[in-house]
Amino acid sequence: MCRSLEHLSNTCLERAKELKARFGSFLLKQELNTMGHSQKTDKLMLEDRQNWSFHDLLAHKEGQCAFTTFLSLEYSEENIAFYLACEDYRNTKSSSKLCSKARKIYEEFICSDAPREVNLDHETRAISLKNMEQPTLSCFNLAQSKIYSLMEKDCYPRFLKSAVYQELIT
């Protein structure tokens, strides 16, 4: 398994592998048909996918998986992995787990020479480090919003022109 996709759910990983390996709309259509969707529902879903904003794309499992596949092809899947790790962190219910989860995210994505270092400016890194002193659910909000903006303004327009996206909407 690709080390950089390990934070994604098993279902999403399986879906991303499937899309990456086959790149065919046949699999998408076949999967939808086996799930019992009618052609009318398929057409509605197709129209929805064609009108997805970046926010919508990340909110839908299928869109998120396709975008993850695209980023892995561009060797920048650390961005979506970081974004999703922050989402998971923000949904942490146990305050006793905040510190260890925060440390893991910081060490994996933010600190200098992190294994999956994301592209953040020095000030954002410093703020994230300062927030690590007493982690709260919002300690990565600034860093996450910077990566979200980077993906939305840089990666998403390229995704819309990609074969991955074309297969998603056909």
Rank of each mutant, 00 (worst) to 15 (best):
M1E: 08
M1A: 13
C2N: 09
L5H: 02
E6V: 07
E6W: 01
H7S: 09
L8H: 13
N10M: 08
T11M: 01
C12L: 09
L13G: 08
L13D: 09
L13T: 09
L13H: 04
E14K: 11
R15P: 01
R15Q: 06
R15E: 06
R15G: 06
K17V: 10
E18M: 10
E18A: 04
L19Q: 14
K20F: 11
K20R: 03
K20N: 10
A21W: 00
A21Q: 13
A21C: 03
R22S: 05
F23S: 15
G24F: 00
S25L: 01
S25V: 02
F26D: 14
L28F: 01
L28M: 04
K29Y: 00
K29H: 05
K29G: 07
E31A: 10
M35F: 02
G36E: 03
H37N: 09
K40Q: 15
T41Q: 15
L44S: 12
E47L: 02
E47F: 00
E47M: 02
D48T: 15
R49Q: 07
N51M: 10
N51P: 04
S53E: 08
F54G: 05
F54E: 02
H55W: 12
D56M: 09
L57G: 12
A59S: 13
A59L: 10
A59P: 05
A59Y: 01
H60E: 13
E62K: 06
G63E: 13
Q64E: 10
A66R: 08
T68F: 06
T69Q: 12
L71E: 03
L73E: 12
L73N: 11
S76E: 14
E78C: 11
N79L: 06
N79Q: 03
N79P: 04
A81Q: 02
F82K: 11
A85W: 01
A85K: 13
A85E: 08
C86D: 02
C86V: 04
R90W: 01
N91R: 09
K93N: 14
K93Q: 14
S96V: 07
S96N: 14
K97I: 11
K97D: 14
L98N: 06
C99A: 13
S100P: 10
K101T: 04
K101G: 06
K101H: 03
A102P: 15
A102T: 02
R103H: 00
R103C: 00
K104M: 13
E108H: 03
S112L: 08
D113T: 08
D113W: 00
R116Y: 13
E117H: 09
N119V: 00
L120P: 08
E123P: 08
E123M: 10
L129E: 14
L129N: 10
K130I: 11
E133M: 01
E133K: 07
T136Y: 00
S138C: 03
S138A: 07
C139G: 05
N141G: 11
N141R: 06
N141H: 05
L142H: 06
A143W: 01
A143I: 05
Q144I: 06
K146E: 09
K146L: 03
I147V: 12
S149L: 10
M151F: 09
E152G: 05
K153C: 14
K153S: 11
D154I: 15
Y156M: 12
Y156F: 15
L160N: 14
S162V: 06
A163N: 02
V164S: 03
Q166Y: 00
E167S: 10
E167D: 06
L168W: 00
L168G: 06
I169F: 03
